[in-house]
């Protein structure tokens, strides 16, 4: 599904990703771990299409399509979703309105008519129930006045509504209490299927107690220095990032 080959990325001339290779197949959950400032969020941003970075080499293919030929919104319509680390506020725009617009834009891209209102409502109620979303949250403005936990929950709620084929969760777990963490995990686990894939970016092994990844990659200094099964996360948790520093 996603194929990253020899990807090199820099910002203002400083190389942040030095040679990334990663294959993500449908049905897989990949966790990317690593200390602060090693390029985890940069990788997420590059896949989503943020243009503040400069790609100096390599390519990223999504279902064989070169992502760098697609705009941010085209990538989203192709099925790439980014759960933001710092979701922005959009005052006056209700979550309902925002999501309906997003869903309809994505449908338009696929040549479909706008979603009928009853179908939209049913879908929303289902997602609310699954994630234990308070009934009035969806009529509030997007992220406006939300607590950190509510913002992250809203990201997962949007993911549930948009049903992406590839969801990248950028440190969705940071700053969450245990209940919110469970909600995030539940969202991922419920949506997990043989047709979609997840890339979960995280500092801690904690989230992986709830979401069992198929693969764990350790990103360090712009490179994936270790890949393995879920045991790698435990090992990392136990030995700390110093272990990585020493072994590279």
């Amino acid at each position: 599904m996603l194929s990253i080959r020899d990807l090199k990325v820099s910002i203002n001339g400083k190389e942040i990703l030095k040679e990334i290779n990663l294959e993500v197949m449908a049905g897989e959950v990949h966790a990317i771990m690593g200390p602060n400032g090693t390029g985890k969020s940069t990788l997420a941003s590059i896949i989503a299409g943020r243009d503040v970075f400069e790609v100096s080499g390599g390519q990223v293919l999504f279902d064989g399509k070169n992502l760098f030929d697609l705009s941010v919104e085209q990538r989203a319509c192709e099925g790439i979703f980014l759960g933001f680390q710092y979701p922005v506020e959009i005052p006056g725009v209700s979550i309902v309105n925002f999501l309906r617009t997003a869903i309809n834009e994505q449908r338009k891209y696929k040549g479909l008519d706008p979603i009928p209102a009853p179908e939209f409502l049913a879908k929303m109620n289902e997602a609310k129930k699954m994630l234990d979303v308070h009934s009035n949250m969806t009529s509030r403005s997007v992220n406006e006045g939300f607590s950190g936990g509510e913002k992250k929950k809203n990201e997962i709620f949007q993911m549930a509504m948009l049903q992406p084929r590839l969801a990248i969760l950028d440190e969705t777990d940071s700053g969450l209490d245990i209940d919110a963490l469970r909600v995030v995990a539940k969202g991922v686990n419920e949506l997990r299927s043989k047709d979609n894939a997840f890339i979960i970016i995280t500092h801690y092994q904690r989230l992986l107690d709830y979401i069992i990844p198929d693969f764990v990659h350790i990103l360090f200094d712009g490179r994936i220095v270790k890949s393995g099964s879920k045991e790698l996360a435990f090992e990392l948790e136990e030995k700390g990032y110093d272990w990585i520093r020493k072994s590279t």
Binding site: E73, A76, F84, Q106, L162
Partner: peptide, 14 residues
Amino acid sequence: QLFYCKQRGIDTEN
């Protein structure tokens, strides 16, 4: 804000 909207599939105009 624009990037956030676009990441959900909404183009600049909309």
